[in-house]
């Protein structure tokens, strides 16, 4: 009996930290197995790539915590980036402001449709996915929007303190903010409660609509930020390529991180590590000349394994 109990506790511990453990294992393996892994270049590349995935994953984690899903994040990135890029081209601050307002407004719309009209999150965000990607293509004429803004570009590309990319700080800030919201604020407690048991949450007087709308809105805002990052590095925004397949990475990161797919506690540290794991696999494969297809297959297997692992124990009930 006691033996079983300790195993059970271990499983709980493992589930909570599986993403972190995976990340550390991959890190150690790479340090020994991959040539030139421990270098500033790797560090730079890693954070330049992982930050946008991580930003979107943080939002996705919140949405998944409410029992929802958002497949419009990639399109939100594109719309935000294209609008903002146009704003820079035409030197119109209004457009830049509009870019975030519009994207967040769409997020709110998704939240309202899900919580008030009881539409499936998947369907609403599918529609928004088309709408936002379409708008991005429409306003740009489906062409790459290139701008020249040396200072802005320098901000995104020039390392701080000689070695550290600005992405690193953005990532730290975003993770910290979302972590604080989830773990230190009223809102976070309410999101957790709502995700865990929506009926009980309503009985406790929690405004469920507000919670859901917030989660979709913050996801939209984070997607916007991710879009800016992606555009900022190359000083241009292509409406068709920005953020494609981002929802796959984001959902995978959140789920590997231990946010339960049917709602519950949004595991922010786990989600961050989940994003790190995905990026690390990509980099590892890149640096060891493993072809892209194999990387893709490897990622698929890891996602399945993580999901299967998180499902253990839940199913036995």
């Amino acid at each position: 009996m006691t033996e079983k109990r300790s195993f059970h506790l271990d499983l709980v511990f493992l589930k909570k930290h599986i993403a972190l453990i995976l990340f550390l294992v991959l890190l150690v393996v790479n340090i020994f197995a991959t040539n030139n892994f421990l270098s500033w270049i790797t560090f730079n590349n890693f954070f330049k790539q992982v930050t946008r995935i991580c930003l979107v994953s943080l939002g996705m984690s919140l949405v998944i915590a409410t029992g929802g899903i958002d497949i419009s994040v990639g399109s939100a990135m594109a719309l935000g980036a294209v609008l903002a890029a146009l704003g820079i081209v035409h030197q119109s601050p209004l457009l830049i402001v509009l870019s975030i307002v519009l994207v967040v407004a769409f997020g709110c719309l998704a939240g309202v449709a899900v919580s008030k009209l009881a539409i499936l999150p998947m369907v609403v965000t599918l529609a928004l996915r088309y709408a936002m990607r379409g708008m991005a293509k429409g306003i740009s004429g489906a062409a790459n929007v290139t701008y020249t803004a040396p200072r802005l570009t320098a901000f995104f590309t020039k390392p701080v303190f000689g070695h550290i990319p600005v992405h690193f700080f953005i990532l730290i800030a975003a993770v910290a903010i979302v972590y604080i919201i989830v773990n230190k604020m009223k809102l976070g407690s309410r999101i957790e409660a709502y995700g865990n048991n929506p009926v009980a949450a309503r009985n406790c007087g929690i405004n469920t609509v507000k919670i859901v709308v917030f989660c979709y809105a913050i996801t939209a805002a984070l997607s916007w930020a991710a879009g800016m990052l992606e555009a900022g590095v190359v000083s241009s925004a292509h409406p068709s390529t920005i953020g494609t397949d981002m929802e796959i990475d984001a959902i995978a990161a959140a789920l590997i991180g231990g946010t339960p797919i049917d709602g519950g506690y949004p595991n922010i540290v786990g989600t961050t590590c989940g994003a790190f794991v995905l990026q690390l696999i990509t980099m590892m494969c890149n640096m060891n000349n493993v072809s892209y297809p194999v990387t893709l297959m490897l990622k698929a297997c890891i996602i399945l394994a993580a999901l299967y692992f998180h499902g253990i124990g839940k199913r036995s009930r």
């Binding site: 998947m122 796959i248 959902i251 789920l255 797919i261 892209y292 297809p293 297959m297 297997c301 499902g311």
Partner: peptide
């Protein structure tokens, strides 16, 4: 495994296969 994720993974896997 939830259908959404399971089929997403097969999508990635099969895409990888085709590309290979």
């Amino acid at each position: 495994i939830p259908a959404f994720i399971a089929t997403l993974a097969t999508q990635m896997f099969v895409r990888g296969l085709v590309q290979m």
